[in-house]
């Protein structure tokens, strides 16, 4: 368990949030031109790295807003929190 500093509500317990998976995955511009492997790559394949990972989180039991989190998956240390639409920080 860890604390997350919601950019709208402030510091809250992790139990108020849900994770929305990896961030910054862009939908293909021409989905009809993809073959099955490329489509599967877009839909299902995620990095799941040990280290700093960029994720989407939703404050579902609070303001219900989505935002991005740069989290170290090895120790749950949050390096950076930034709003939707903002560029990922260089870490």
């Amino acid at each position: 368990m860890f604390l997350i500093n919601c950019p709208y509500c402030g510091v809250r317990d992790q139990s108020e949030f849900v994770s929305g998976g990896e961030a910054h995955i862009a939908r293909p511009k021409q989905p009809t031109e993809l073959n099955d492997d490329q489509w599967a790559e877009y839909l299902f394949m995620r990095k799941n790295i040990k280290g700093i990972q960029f994720e989407r989180w939703n404050h579902v039991h609070g303001c219900r807003k989505w935002f991005n989190v740069a989290r170290d998956t090895s120790n749950d240390k949050i390096e950076k929190i930034y709003k939707m639409g903002e560029q990922p920080p260089k870490i």
Binding site: C9, R12, S15, C63
Partner: peptide, 10 residues
């Protein structure tokens, strides 16, 4: 004001 959970209830 705050929105939170009490006993898992919003």
């Amino acid at each position: 004001t705050t929105q939170t959970i009490i006993n898992h209830i919003d």
